[in-house]
Every structure is written in C-alpha cells, then in structure tokens.
Amino acid sequence: MKRTLAVAALATIAFAGAAEARDQIRIVGSSTVFPFASKVVEQFGKTTSFKTPVIESTGSGGGLKLFCAGVGVDHPDITNSSRAIKSSEVETCAKNGVNKITEITIGYDGIVVADSKKGPEFAVSRKDLYLALAKSVPDPKGGDKLIPNPYKTWKDVNASLPANDIEVLGPPPTSGTRDAFVELVMDVGCEQFAFIKAMAKADPKAYKAACQAIREDGAYIEAGENDTLIVNKLVENPKALGIFGYSFLDQNADKIKGATIDGVKPTFENIASSKYPVSRPLFFYVKGEHVGVIPGIKEYVAEFTSEAAIGEDGYLPQIGLIPLPADKAKVVKEAGKTLPHNVK
C-alpha cells in the first residue's frame, strides 16, 4: 500500500512539473488562414533564430475558444480567424483575463462558385443562388408565402441558365466558408424579396430560417472541409457546381472555372478591387499579455505584416491571398509594429 502511494506521488510530481516556460509561439484557428499562416511560420522559422511556431488548424470558432481560455503557457498566443471576433467571445476573453487583444487584417479571401471546364458557362445572380439553394423559397406563382424549394434545374430558377439539375457541392455548417457564403450570398439574395426583408424586424427567427437554411433534399451536397475533394468531384461531374475558397480555383485553373456572380468574374483583380461581391476579410488576433513573455511574437507579427508577405508582390498573394488596398495596408503595417490593443 505504501509503495503504491509512493509511486502515485512520484507520477504526480513528474506530471505536475510539466507546465514550464515555452519558447515557441503557438497558433490556432481558421483552416482558411492556415495555408497562409503556415507559409509565414515557415519563413519566420528559417530566417530568424526563433523556433518555428506551431500552427493547429482548429477552425475560427475553435481557435477563438482556445485563445480566450486564459493567459499563460498552456494557452495559444495567436489565433487566426476568417471572421471578426464576436462580442460574446470578447467577453469570454475578458472573463479569463485576456484583455489586451490586437486584431490584424491580413487580406481578403474570395469564395467562388465553380464548375468543370467541360461544363457550361455560368453567370448567376445572388438571387439565383438563393432560389436554387434555400430550403424554402417564395412561391413562384406569386404571393408573399414561402414554400419548400420546388426548383429542380437551373433553368427553372432563371430561364437564361442551362437546363442542368441543381447539384452543388459545398462546405458543411461547421465551416467558416459556409458562414461567409450564407452571409454574403444567401442573405443578400433573399433580401431582394421585400416581404422577407420586412420579416427581419418583425420576426427575426423566421427571417433567419427563410434566408439561411440550405435545402436538404440532395441538391446541396455537403462535401466536407476538403476542397481538393470538391475539385476532383467537379472534374468527374461537369454538371455539378462547387463552393470553395479562391486559392483552389487559382491552383486548378486548368480543370475548373469560376461562375460569374452578379456580372463579375472571380479573378484576382476583381476580388482585390472588391468588385467581386463574395469576399471576406481574414484576420489574426494577438494576445497582448503574451507579448514579451513568449519570445518572438513581435517579430512574427512583423514578418506577417511585412511587404514581403502580404504586399501586392508578396509571397502570400502568390498562393491566393487577396492583398489589402494601399490605404488599409498602411494601417495594418503600422498596427503590426505597435500592436495596439484594438479589440474592445
């Protein structure tokens, strides 16, 4: 009995001694920002004497949850996010002692609707996309009433579109890309109907259900978080459309093409000049309490916000990040040097 106790005590000591100083930056967060951040991390590790930071791809929400869990070596220093921090998350942060947060915008990401090169040209409006993908839509026969989505082919939605069955491969609800798609396409599309727009004030719940619920009858296929897989499926099925980030279109321009949305093609220039309507800013958040405690945070942020990284000719735009316009870029570079605690 005594010996067992001694062993248990030893084991506890061995484990308890674990929470020691850390000399390596830890980053969590969005899978959309992950490819860009990992490139910066690699560059940072190779060109400085600091250890290469470790990045986990946890998704924006998961990342902010870990980030806000507290101050100290057990908690990450930086989180990447494909959406802005919510006020509820700022509150959680504050409750756990994380008060000095710096928000840095690194650029934009376009969300594209694409199909195989062998498929037909698609020129859609956001209203078309809403009608094709929503769970319930306004009755095509007229009247201010919602009915379960009756549309089978694109031609049913809009006579100028091809007569192919509606078949869209897209991200599942856990994905930040899906959130952004719903916000930037579905919401905008459904607000073109005056009676739904009126619902926003009167009955926000019904409004949300009308605008944001995506059909579940097989026309929209949740294809998981793996965008490479969606691209491969599009190549095999020229009649299907896929929804994913711009960098996958950029890398696979020989296999797939982007649909024109509201008259604008998803090109690098159009997204950068914000002509293309479906794009969102990407961020990362720095924990001020850790700056100066964990070595290298300042230098890492400086690398990420440098001209060599996010500038127009930088290495991140080369892999699909849409750079910031000049005036915003200037603000971001300044913030990268001073790390103001700009999240309240």
């Binding site: 674990a18 390596q24 992950f34 990992s38 991390v41 690699e42 590790g45 250890k51 290469t52 470790v54 990045i55 986990e56 791809s57």
Partner: peptide, 17 residues
C-alpha cells in the same frame, strides 16, 4: 490534443511538438 498541426522542425524529444 493538438497533434494535427503544421510543424516544420523535426521533433527532438518526447515533449516537443
């Protein structure tokens, strides 16, 4: 437990990422 991560450095011990 955080082992699904982008790690460039070759791990040198049981406690390194």
């Amino acid at each position: 437990i955080g082992m699904v991560a982008f790690i460039v450095d070759i791990p040198g011990g049981f406690r390194e990422p």
